[in-house]
Nucleic acid binder design. Structure first.
Lengths: 224, 224
DNA sequence: CCTTGGCAAGAGCAGTGCTCACTTTTGTGG
DNA sequence: CCACAAAAGTGAGCACTGCTCTTGCCAAGG
C-alpha cells in the first residue's frame, strides 16, 4: 500500500470521525450545530476541521447524504420479500422505524430547509431511493395485474407523470405514478407529524395509527 | 382614555412592528433570525427589543402563534359554504394557498422543531384550529348520514380516538376521527413536500397534483 | 540529506444572544 | 405646574459563533 493511500485512509477515518461527532451534536443543536463544539469534542482546533469540510454547510451536506442513503438502504432492505402489498407496508414501517431511531437525521432531511441552503446535486440521487422503491413495488404489482390503474388523469399533469414513469419506472401507468408519489408524501407526512410533535397529547398508539394510515394508502393504490 | 392605556397602546404598536420586521427576516434567515439585525432595521439598540420580548425564542413563539392563528382563520373562512365534500376541499386549498403566500411561516410551524425549543401552552389552542375545522366538517357529514363510518378500529387506538371525539367533536365515530386526522396529516405532508422542495424537478403542476391527492383523501373519508 | 505538501494551531474579524448599569423620556399625582 | 417613579432606550461587555489567514510542524519522497 503506497503512502498516498495511507494518507487517504487516515483522511477518510478522520472525516468519518468528524461526521460521527457532528451527528451526536445534531441531537442537541439540530441543523445549527456548532462546528467549534464538534472540534472541541475531537480535541482539535476548529480551523483544522476546515481541512476536511469547506464549511459547516458542507459538513451538513455530508450528513444529509449519509442520512438519505441510510433510510434508502433500510427501505430497500425491507422490500425484499413478500407480496406486493406486504412489501409496500414493510417499506412504510422501515422508513418509520429508521426515523424513530434517527430522529435528528430525519429532521435534517425532511424538516424545513434552512433558507439560503441550496442542496447540491450529490444529494438528489440518495434522496430518491425511498420513492423509487415504492414506485418499483407499485410497478411490479401493476405489471402483475394485481392493481387497477384507476381513473385516468388528464392534461399537463398526466404528461408530467408519463415523463416520470419513463425516467424511473418504465411501464407504470401515470395514475400509478401519481398514487405512488401521494403515498410517499403521506408516508413522510405521517412520520414527520409523529416526530415533530403534532400528535402529542392526542395519539399515543403511534404505530397502530401509522399502520391505519398506510393501510388506507395501500387500499387507495389498489393493493389487496 | 387613561395614560396607562396610551402606554399599552404604544407598546402594542411597537410589539407589532417588531414582529412585522422579524417576519420579513424569517424569509432570509428562517428560524435562526438575528435579533440584532431586526433591531437595526428598526433603528433601535438590540437591548431595547428585550423590553418587548424576553428572548429570541419568545419572539419566535409570538410569530408561531400568529402564524397558527392566520392559517387557522383562513381554513375556517374557507369552510363557510358548500356541501361537506366541497368544504373539505376548500379547507385543503385554503391551507395550501396560505402556505404558498406565507412560506417561511409555514416552515416555522410545520417544519422541523429546533431542538431544545419547547412550545409553550399558548401555542396549542391556535395550533389545532385547522384540524378542528376538518373534524367539524367530517362530523357534520357523518351526522347528516352522508358518509359511512367504515370498518371499526379496535384496541387502545379506538379508545384514544373515542376520547378525542368526546373532547373535540362529540358524536363523531372513532373511525371518522382517525380518518380526519389522517387527512390532515396528508394535507400538511403535501404542502410541506411542495414547499420544502421535495417535488422539484418532478412535478410542476403542483395545484393539480395537490387536488389529486386531496380528492383521493376525500374519497377515503367517504365524501361523495 | 533536504524539499515539499498536507495537517494542525492560534490569532483575529465580524457577527450573534443576552445582561447590566446607565440615561432619557413620559404619564401622572400632589 | 412640576417633581417623581416607572417605563423605554442606550452602549459596553461577556461568551459564543463561522470563517480566514499566517505560522509552524512533520512525515513522505527524491
Amino acid at each position: 500500500m503506497t503512502a498516498a493511500s495511507i494518507r487517504a485512509r487516515v483522511r477518510a477515518e478522520m472525516t468519518d470521525e468528524i461526521k460521527a461527532v457532528a451527528r451526536r451534536h445534531l441531537a442537541t443543536d439540530g441543523a445549527n450545530l456548532s462546528l467549534r463544539a464538534v472540534a472541541r469534542d475531537l480535541g482539535m482546533a476548529s480551523s483544522a476541521v476546515y481541512r476536511y469540510f469547506a464549511s459547516r454547510d458542507d459538513l451538513l451536506t455530508a450528513l444529509i447524504i449519509d442520512a438519505y442513503d441510510s433510510v434508502g438502504a433500510a427501505a430497500e432492505e425491507s422490500a425484499r420479500t413478500g407480496g406486493h402489498g406486504e412489501r409496500f407496508l414493510a417499506v412504510c414501517h422501515a422508513v418509520r422505524d429508521w426515523a424513530l431511531a434517527n430522529r435528528h437525521e430525519w429532521a435534517l432531511i425532511y424538516g424545513s430547509p434552512v433558507p439560503g441552503y441550496q442542496a447540491p446535486r450529490d444529494t438528489v440521487e440518495p434522496a430518491v431511493r425511498v420513492i423509487l422503491q415504492i414506485g418499483a413495488i407499485v410497478r411490479d404489482a401493476a405489471l402483475a395485474g394485481e392493481i387497477e390503474p384507476g381513473a385516468p388523469i388528464t392534461g399537463r399533469l398526466n404528461e408530467e407523470l408519463e415523463v416520470i414513469a419513463e425516467q424511473t419506472a418504465a411501464g407504470t401507468p401515470p395514475q400509478m405514478v401519481a398514487r405512488s408519489l401521494a403515498a410517499w408524501i403521506h408516508l413522510c407526512g405521517a412520520v414527520s407529524a409523529e416526530l415533530f410533535g403534532q400528535l402529542n397529547n392526542t395519539i399515543d398508539e403511534r404505530r397502530e395509527f401509522f399502520e391505519f394510515q398506510m393501510r388506507a394508502e395501500a387500499k387507495t393504490i389498489g393493493f389487496r
